[in-house]
Design a binder for these strands. Sequence first.
DNA 1: CGCTCCCGCCATGCC
DNA 2: GGCATGGCGGGAGCG
Length: 887
Amino acid sequence: ENIYDRSRMAPKTPIKNEPIDLSKQKGCTPERNPITPVKIIDRPQPDPWTPTTNLKILVSAASPDMRDREKKKELFRPIENSEQSDTPDSLQYDIVDDSTVDEFEKQRPSRKQKSLGLLCQKFLARYPNYPLSTEKTTISLDEVASILGVERRRIYDIVNVLESLQLVSRVAKNQYCWHGRHNLSQTLKMLQEAGELQYGELMTSQHKEQDLEYKFGERKKETIPDSQDKPLLDFSEPDCSSASANSRKDKSLRIMSQKFVMLFLVSKTKIVTLDIAAKILIEETQDTVDHSKFKTKVRRLYDIANVLTSLGLIKKVHVTEERGRKPAFKWIGPVEFPDKTDELRGHSPTSDPLPETQRGACAQHQTSATGKQKFTRHASFNSAQPCEATRRKVSSEPNSPRQERQACIVNSDENCSKMINLAAVCRQKIEEDTGSAKNSNLSVPFSLLPVPGDSDFCVNPLPQAVFPVVQADVPNFSLPNGISSQPSHPSMPAASKTENGKSPLVPNQPFLCFPSSSLFMLCGGLQENNLSEPLPAAGDLGNRSAEAQAPVPPTVCQKRSSHKCSSPSAPVDDEEPAAKKQTLEHSDLPLSLVVPKKPSESPKAESSPGSGCSAAVHLETNHPDLASPAAPEVANKESTKPLDCQEQEKQSQNKDADEPPPGNEHISKENANQPFQPQYLYVQPTAGLSGFNFLFSANQAPGAISLAANQLPSLSVPCVMVPSAALASFPLVCSPSFTSPLSSVPDGSFSAAAPTNLSMSSLASTTPVFISTTAVVTPKVSPTPSVDPQQPAHPALHLSPVLTRSCSAVKLDSPVCMGHPVTLLKLQQPSSAPLTPKSIRPAHHEAFFKTPGSLGDPVAWKKNEGNQTRNASSVQRRLEISSTSPD
DNA sequence: CGCTCCCGCCATGCC
DNA sequence: GGCATGGCGGGAGCG
């Protein structure tokens, strides 16, 4: 129905938004006339459901807002629910529908909306990834089932898989205990070890599925004799009534899940096709495998895969073989399992010392220190729900508070801080968009993402890409080494890894980061798959760390992680045409996240800051100036983001990426390859800042634009497209909001341009956006136009301790940026173009999707979308940067 | 048309 | 018999 509406109602873009819209719609609008026969006709047309849509939907669903809405409409009630739900089921649901939600309901949730994966996300959203050890969360199946509006049977499916990974454990009838991901790495490690024993040989040796299959087939018989029956890892243990407990046939789902995960862990490529897995998992009959049994197994694997996907441990990919393309899943969770270290950020002092709370505190501190930043994000990121609250609050709240958080971030780790910053930025943007967008207040620059997750995102990207400069500035960042040169992903800290793994999981978490993250980069063609490869060393590290820390960026993290993991070999993905992959992936995965990661990879960026990436910078609307002089700088600045992109690209390219320092080249290549993937750097205006955001697309192509659009939407920030020419003319503008305005262009140029915001520049604190991912890229903007470019630079460079600021500052400052050849920004669209709805939306979608986070706050996004209009109005500009041409 | 995978029947076990 | 679990596969949604 929604679809109908869409098509009819909003001709604009039918689609993508919808999912989100749905939620909104439910809440808001009644239906229209929707259901006329015609509608029906329409329905089909509305293709609203694109792969992305699903993602969006999922995301939205995941997001707290979604939940809330749903609850309201459907019955879902707030967490407390247990009581609330009188009627469990659909019944109420229906009722509700009638009344308010008609549309929604009427629409009748599409199959996708009822998917196990989405359900799992909702489920996971209810619990923190890393619950405090102290808190014991018990899960009542009935309660959850009623809350989520599904039958209990479905909950069993989810819980069984989670149980196989020890994310939960059964404590009693109908009662499960939520453990979160603390033990995930250990569990995975165990599984990996067990898997190696059983399948290891096969897997390791093999890369190809076929081979694997083959081997498996053989092996299985031999090696794996009994494993089938018993759970590889018997977590269940304790149960006294073991007999009874275990009795049920071993719970094939649980065992299957463990085995399935093992296959990934022992697989070099980290890619496992369903049929192979099914064959391997089919117990006894390897050979006999009757078809029916095989089919059943595959069905189960889909169930498991959906849950694992929701956890961010795997993602769907397609493997093309001779016979054709086969569905497969790629492991994007942590590959290495250091020990527990990873488990918690909180635990690890270094990586992510700050627990959520702490972070929040930190943020505050920083703020105080910084003073300028106002994002206050609520620290709450941690818990999913909180997130919602946070967002809301944020949105509602004025900008000022946000700053605090950013600050906090800074405190934490460098990486983290970066990540956080990014996240914060994103959030802020989001929030702003949603809530305060209207205000173009500077204030909000970006909120830091207090949430770990956020941090992750942000951090990763930032560090690497941006970084060098930043690093220097910022004491904290460790990245540095790695970043710059190192490719070695391997070295990633355990924590990071873990986190990475976690991050994906995060879905629950409310991090909104994504959205924000998305802000940064929208790479049209992120090739996640490609990413798989080894990341550029430094960047990777940073990313990882970030990822680990930040829950939010799950997707990104995942991607990253995956990449990292797979690093060595270019996985299957590589094999596939990039375009396809991208497409697919994009659709499937949240790109946005990815992008951010890429930044982290920054190595490229580092090498060639300006080049590839188009960094999005917040510019004043007026100053598009990227113009010549400034442009380069901008590019550089942007580059950070671009870097990300580049990284992605690189990843896609894989190995290559590392080597070629210059991001530009890569980008260009990529661009060439993937026209679509324009890389945009989206710079959010710092929060409410005047809201200048620029998007720079690495790619010039229209595609890029589209992307941009996506970005925009996601961000909600208005983007302005500035023709390169235009830019040239204009000095870059630094949005005041940003701490450091971008000086996109070399000093002189933008200084001139700057005018508008420059003053603002002083504010630099806000800059968040750049900072984060692109940090590097982002040009250091000289805050004030008036200010001498030079000077500014220093300042800019300074990574302010404060996360937010620092980030921004860094970006701007970062020499790198300056240096980079950066691609020029082209204004694809005329300035006005902010985003056409179309473009925007799509972009949005993608962004959302990509962003793992989708996790982030759906709400925010939604809001953003809603705000799009606003955005458009807003000054944001997109700048495309021709990836190729550095300058 | 084939991939996905939702839905819910119904078996299994325990009380 | 009732209830908790969860195996299983028909068949529908979707691309």
